[in-house]
Simulated assay, not measured.
Amino acid sequence: MQPPFSNHKHIQVVSTFSDLIDLQLQGDTNAVCWSRQLHGDFQEIVNQLELIENITEITVEDLQALQLSEQGIVAREVIIKDIERLTECGASPSLNLLKSYERDDEFDFISTDVYSYHVDRSPLATDTFLCTYYGAASDILPNEQAIQKILIPEIRAKLKELFDGPEAEFENFLAEYFFDLHYQAPEDATPINLGVGHLWRLAVDHPTQAVLPCVHRAPSEAGEYRLLLIC
């Protein structure tokens, strides 16, 4: 069964890990999804892990130390295999048990935390990989629906008030504090939920990227833990 986003112009759905890695991003496509229906009890893993503060990085050794049922073992093998695959490709995957990310409430007119629609920036020719095994999943926003916050007149005016320097350096200021990475969705926007179990590759902003970076955000957890692999 194909996922609901399978025909979206920004998303290419593939059926193997090698296709996920090897697909060349071009045109409108800036997100690749290895669509999967995972087996196993991921909730059992979440229930056995210990959350320290709001985010805890979980190691393979932590997973292997868990005493799990047959279905829990199946879920653990899926996670470890994903970590191994990504590591073999040169990535540095991090498995996180999280209750919530830190909120940015420094300014009342602009937010720069991960709950705000944003793009990732990298000095290297790489992409963002992520998979939600349990809990709420992230959203992506089609680029044509994303409004860069620094271009919204009211927000730009307040940022200029915040900036105490020559006009020629204003754009550097916006990049230095990551204001330029964040976007706003119009009221009629149609975000796309990434779903649970799928392994995603999202285009990032870097000098050699051939496509637009993928605009995305973390979900509101609403008190539920998430188990997320990201790199």
Rank of each mutant, 00 (worst) to 15 (best):
F129N: 01
A146H: 14
F42M: 08
E144T: 01
V119Q: 06
E53A: 13
F163G: 07
V46H: 08
K160C: 03
P93S: 11
T128F: 11
K158F: 06
H118T: 13
G90P: 06
I73W: 06
A125Q: 14
I152K: 09
D62G: 04
I45S: 00
F129M: 12
V78L: 05
F107S: 12
L97M: 09
Y117R: 14
Y115R: 03
A137R: 04
T56Y: 08
L66P: 10
R85C: 09
L98W: 10
S111K: 08
P93T: 12
L86R: 01
A91M: 13
S116E: 15
Y134R: 03
D164A: 05
T132S: 10
A65M: 04
I152T: 11
Q48P: 00
L98V: 05
I55V: 10
C131D: 02
V46G: 13
E57A: 04
Y101E: 10
A136D: 12
F163T: 06
V46L: 05
E53V: 07
E44R: 00
L151A: 12
P153F: 00
Q145K: 03
V46F: 04
T128S: 05
I52R: 12
I110C: 02
S92P: 11
I155L: 08
G72H: 00
Y134K: 05
I147S: 01
L151V: 09
L51T: 05
E53C: 08
K158Q: 12
E102F: 13
E88A: 11
L124N: 12
L159S: 04
E53K: 02
D62E: 04
D139F: 02
A137V: 02
D113A: 05
